[in-house]
């Protein structure tokens, strides 16, 4: 089943066409990777899918329903969650509360209920607490659950972001360079975590520059260059693709590699 489908997805900023006629199809249950040189429009594509940018043309469909043009707070309710390339946690809040923020769409307490501290609100709070705790255990942050996130090392912050995205209970998880800035050990742990997330039945689309990571994880790879998709396929196919070599290495570079 096509979980996510973009058709002719295009956005331009002034004269710059950042994403140009992009067609992606992500199958349910897969781990897909979006790769390409810097500035090729990978993050912009994710921003289009999650409603941070509105496409100039084309559309995004999720489970057969057009979601492009919806405000971002509704897109996440459809079941798409994401992390950010430059980690964006709520730094003054604890790990626990950052993940609790992800539960927002699954909670209902309204102002009146909160003020009178109604039974429903108290029960919801207790339920949220245990669900957040479960996510914290799942991603392995139990020891630092009460730390403010701005005091955490970089690698941990990335994991908190993933935990926060998981708290929205997504069907599709978009990870924007999850391994950027991680050391070898942390990268290994991340790979395990991503596999664990897939095993929970969550489809993953990730942007990544670490090719070993892409090779080890991705069932399907899309390659972008100058805002356009230049290739897609399994990692093996992509690796042999002339256009991809050119995009990364230039024409001459590709010749050298081939020689």
């Amino acid at each position: 089943m096509d979980l996510l489908k973009t058709t002719n997805l295009t956005v331009s900023f002034g004269g710059l066409v950042a994403v140009n006629g992009l067609n992606l199809t992500v199958q349910k249950g897969q781990i897909c990777a979006l790769i390409g040189p810097n500035g090729s429009g990978k993050t912009t594509a994710i921003n289009l899918i999650t409603g941070i940018y509105v496409p100039t043309a084309g559309k995004v469909e999720f489970k057969g329903e057009t979601i492009s043009g919806l405000p971002r707070h509704l897109i996440v309710r459809k079941g798409i969650a994401r992390t950010f390339q430059n980690i964006r946690l709520i730094g003054n809040q604890t790990v626990f509360d950052n993940i609790r923020l992800g539960m927002h769409i699954h909670t209902k307490a309204n102002l009146l209920g909160v003020i009178v501290n109604s039974r429903a609100v108290r029960e919801e709070m207790a339920a949220v607490k245990s669900e957040v705790q479960e996510i914290i255990d799942f991603v392995g942050l139990s020891k630092i659950a009460q730390e403010k996130t701005r005091n955490l090392p970089y690698g941990k912050q990335r994991i908190v972001e993933i935990g926060r995205a998981l708290a929205t209970k997504p069907e599709l998880l978009l990870l924007d360079e999850p391994a950027a800035g991680l050391n070898t050990q942390e990268t290994l742990e991340l790979v395990e975590l991503i596999k664990k997330i897939r095993d929970r039945g969550i489809t993953i689309l990730l942007i990544e520059h670490h090719m070993e990571l892409v090779e080890g994880l991705a069932d399907w790879v899309f390659v972008l260059n100058y805002g356009q998709k230049i290739a897609e396929g399994t990692f093996k196919d992509i690796k042999a693709n002339e256009l991809v070599k050119e995009a990364y290495l230039g024409k001459r570079g590709a010749r050298v590699v081939n020689a």
């Binding site: 971002r72 707070h73 309710r77 994401r82 950010f84 709520i90 923020l101 926060r164």
Partner: peptide, 18 residues
């Protein structure tokens, strides 16, 4: 929590469904 998050990063808070 939503209000405090808006103060720090409205974009992310929106992406989280607020």
């Amino acid at each position: 929590l939503a209000l405090l998050s808006i103060k720090e990063d409205p974009l992310v808070t929106g992406v989280m469904g607020v």
